[in-house]
Nucleic acid binder design. Structure first.
Lengths: 174, 174
DNA sequence: ACGTTTGTTCAAAAAAGTTTGAACAAACGA
DNA sequence: TCGTTTGTTCAAACTTTTTTGAACAAACGT
C-alpha cells in the first residue's frame, strides 16, 4: 500500500470492529504511521487503541475492540513491548495483564532505532568489510581504484548514518 | 523478511543472474538497504548494479545482469528516477538511454524524504485536524480533556518530525 | 512503408508478509 | 486434582505486494 511501485486502490480501514468515531480515526492515523515505518497494520491498530484509551487495556479488550484474533493481539503486543512502545501496568490485584502506551516521542523513536535500524546497520557493516576485501582483490588497477572508491563511499554512508542516530534521539528527546 | 513479526527463513539472494563476486555482494548490500526503507528488492538490485558499474548501463544490461524481466527493470528505473537516485546520461549519440547512479548521500536522502516521507506527513496532518475537531465534540469533560491532550501530543510529534527533516538533510549534505 | 530496436503498460502469476485459529501451556482458585 | 481463565505458538489460510511477460507504442534506419 502506498508502495513506490503500485497504483492499486487501497483497502479501506476496517469496519468489522466495535470502534467508534474518534477511536476509529486515531487508529487510522497510527495504521498509516506504522505503515510508513514498515510495520504491520495490527501493530498500528493496537497501539492506536491503547493510545486513545483513558484506561489500560488487556489483550481481550483489543481482540474485541479491533475484531482481530487472539494470536494477532498477542504477537502485536509482543512486538510493541519489544519496541518499548507499550508497557505492562504493574500492581493491580488482577490476573490479566493490562497494557498502556508509551507516549514520549523519545522513547518511541529510541525503540524503533534500537530494534529496527541498528541491527541492519550492524549487519551492513560486516558486509561492507567483506566488500572492501573483495575490492582489493580486483587485478585491474583502474577498476580496483573505482571499486575501492565506491566501497569507501558506502562505508561513509553507514558511518554517517550511525552518527546521525544519537543526534536524532537527542533532538527528539523532550 | 526481517519483518518485526516473522521468524521465517529468508530467501537467499538470487543465483539466476550473471553477477559475479563483488557485484553480487554490492547488490546484496543494497537489497538489504532498500528493504529497510520499505522499497522492493528490484530497486535495490538495480541501484546496486548501477552503483558498482564503471560505466553507465542501459535497461537491457540490467535485465541481463540481474536476470529480471524488462517490466521490472523499466518500473524499477522509473521509481529510482522519481527518487532522484539515478539519472539518464545525456548526449551520447546512442539510441538507447543509459543510466548512472546518484551517489551523493544528500541527494539520496533528499529524494527519499521528498517522495516517501513528506507525503505521509502531509496526509497525516489533515487527519489530525479532523481528530482535533472530533475530540472537541466529546461531551464528557474529563474524557474530552484526555482526548484533547492525546491529539495535541500527536500533533506535536508530526510538527517535530517536520522540523527534523530539513535538519537531517543539512547534516547529511556533504 | 516496413522491419527492428527500445521501452512502457498492465493483467495475471508468483512471492512475500500478515492474520487466523486450534492446540498447547501456565497460573490460578475451588 | 480439576476446570477455568489467560496468553502463546505456529502451520495454514489469506492478503498484499512484486514480478513477469505478452501486447502495445514510439523512434529510428533503410
Amino acid at each position: 500500500m502506498g508502495s513506490i511501485m503500485s497504483t492499486l486502490p487501497e483497502r479501506e480501514n476496517e469496519t468489522s470492529s466495535s470502534l467508534e468515531g474518534l477511536e476509529r480515526q486515531i487508529v487510522d492515523v497510527f495504521v498509516d504511521g506504522v505503515k510508513v515505518l514498515g510495520l504491520p497494520r495490527s501493530i498500528g491498530e493496537i497501539y492506536g487503541v491503547l493510545f486513545i484509551s483513558p484506561t489500560p487495556l488487556a489483550l481481550d479488550d483489543l481482540v474485541e475492540k479491533l475484531g482481530i484474533s487472539k494470536g494477532s493481539a498477542s504477537q502485536g503486543l509482543r512486538a510493541l513491548k519489544g519496541l518499548g512502545a507499550v508497557r505492562e501496568v504493574e500492581g493491580n490485584g488482577e490476573r490479566r495483564t493490562y497494557f498502556e502506551p508509551a507516549v514520549e516521542l523519545k522513547r518511541l523513536v529510541g525503540g524503533f532505532i534500537r530494534e529496527q535500524v541498528r541491527p541492519h546497520i550492524e549487519s551492513g557493516k560486516k558486509k561492507i568489510n567483506k566488500l572492501a576485501e573483495a575490492a582489493r582483490e580486483e587485478p585491474d588497477p583502474e577498476r580496483r581504484a573505482f571499486f575501492q572508491e565506491r566501497v569507501e563511499r558506502i562505508d561513509n554512508w553507514t558511518r554517517r548514518g550511525g552518527q546521525v542516530l544519537p543526534l536524532l534521539q537527542r533532538i527528539l528527546g523532550e
